[in-house]
């Protein structure tokens, strides 16, 4: 690889990914807040409000509590944002290839998705507040609960693809993107895929810690939990990380289940095709975020941590395994 290409890949593209994540993460956050407000019969903040919030947080004083571990406390927000952005490096955006395609695959994405939560946990423990400690414990329990159904969901898709395309690098998101899973399954497999999609959508609010799973933050219970001691720039970074993570998770879901582009239906140049696909990609993200986040968070109450563990360990895992079983039945031809 030429040095300038290396430079491009290592510096320019991640910066672009960060810009993309922050810009659209905050925009989607604004839309999410506006739509949630409308569903609650309120007017809600203007869509640019998240940008203002971040701008304000960055100008505020950054307080590091006395009984915290200062370096750990301050480094975690940065690490959280970095890990959220690095997910974006592995996901296809529009019809662009993933920036780091060939250097890592879905398994890496799975780990990277867990990393922001781990940063939150460490940051929470490092802040030395009993509320943050309770929040961190809850976040850990939540991670343990949702990791397995999430893994089941992702593995079932990849396993199916590996059967159909033996010898290929099926774990690469770029490959999954160009070979939609829907084309490979029969009827029972289709139902299996729908179930897996449901499981994945159900893990979305819990991964992003939104109602009904905002248990680690739960402002009426533990006063903001993990983030209780964070302020100013550090809190702003966590806010950005949350926004970027939302986009990243939604684009993983979009890449796994809705990898289609619509540029081929338009008579446009290659550049025009990229633009149309990019816009269509944003629409897909919006749909995923609306269903998986906004709608759920206004329609239910916050549940308790033991109930989360129960739902995800028992219910979601079983649902996920049923989906997997249906896909297996479909591919081995027991029924069809």
């Amino acid at each position: 690889m030429e040095y300038y290409e290396l430079l491009f890949r290592v510096i320019i593209l991640p910066i672009l990914a960060l810009g993309f994540g922050v810009l659209f993460g905050l925009t989607f956050k604004g839309i999410d807040r506006k739509l949630a407000a409308h569903m609650q019969a309120r007017v809600g903040p203007p869509i640019r409000q998240p940008f203002r919030d971040v701008a304000k947080l960055f100008t505020k004083e950054n307080i590091i509590p006395e009984n915290s571990i200062p370096w750990l406390f301050s480094v975690m927000p940065i690490l959280c944002l970095v890990s959220a952005v690095s997910v974006l490096l592995y996901t296809p955006i529009g019809s662009f290839e993933p920036i780091l395609s060939g250097y890592g695959d879905l398994i890496v994405v799975l780990y990277l998705l867990a990393l922001p939560a781990i940063c939150l946990v460490i940051g929470g423990f490092a802040s030395g507040s009993p509320y943050a400690t309770v929040g961190a414990q809850r976040e850990m329990v939540m991670m343990l609960s949702y990791e397995f159904p999430l893994a089941v969901a992702i593995i079932s898709i990849v396993w199916k693809l590996s059967l159909v395309y033996p010898g290929e690098n099926v774990f690469s998101l770029g490959f999954i993107m160009s070979h939609p899973v829907w084309n490979t399954v029969g009827f029972s497999g289709f139902i299996g895929c729908v179930i897996i999609l449901f499981v994945l959508c159900a893990t979305m609010p819990i991964t992003l810690a939104k109602i009904p799973f905002d248990i680690p933050e739960a402002e009426t219970e533990i006063a903001g939990g993990l983030l209780v001691e964070y302020s100013g720039k550090n809190l702003g970074l966590f806010y950005l990380a949350d926004a970027v993570k939302t986009v990243a998770f939604a684009s993983v879901v979009a890449a796994l289940f809705f990898p289609y582009g619509i540029a081929c239906y338009f008579d446009v140049s290659t550049t025009g095709g990229y633009v149309i696909d990019f816009i269509f990609f944003l629409v897909k993200l919006f749909v995923v975020i609306f269903i998986g986040l906004t709608f759920i968070r206004v329609a239910v109450a916050r549940i308790k941590i033991d109930q989360v563990a129960h739902i995800y360990w028992m219910l979601m895992t079983i649902i996920g395994l049923v989906g997997l079983a249906l896909i297996i039945i479909d591919s081995t031809g027991v029924i069809s």
């Binding site: 569903m39 609650q40 019969a41 309120r42 109602i211 009904p212 905002d214 739960a218 009426t220 206004v298 329609a299 239910v300 109450a301 916050r302």
Partner: peptide, 12 residues
């Protein structure tokens, strides 16, 4: 409703 995080019901 707000205490259990169900803000929609609070507004309703």
């Amino acid at each position: 409703a707000h205490e259990i995080g169900f803000d929609t019901v609070l507004y309703l």
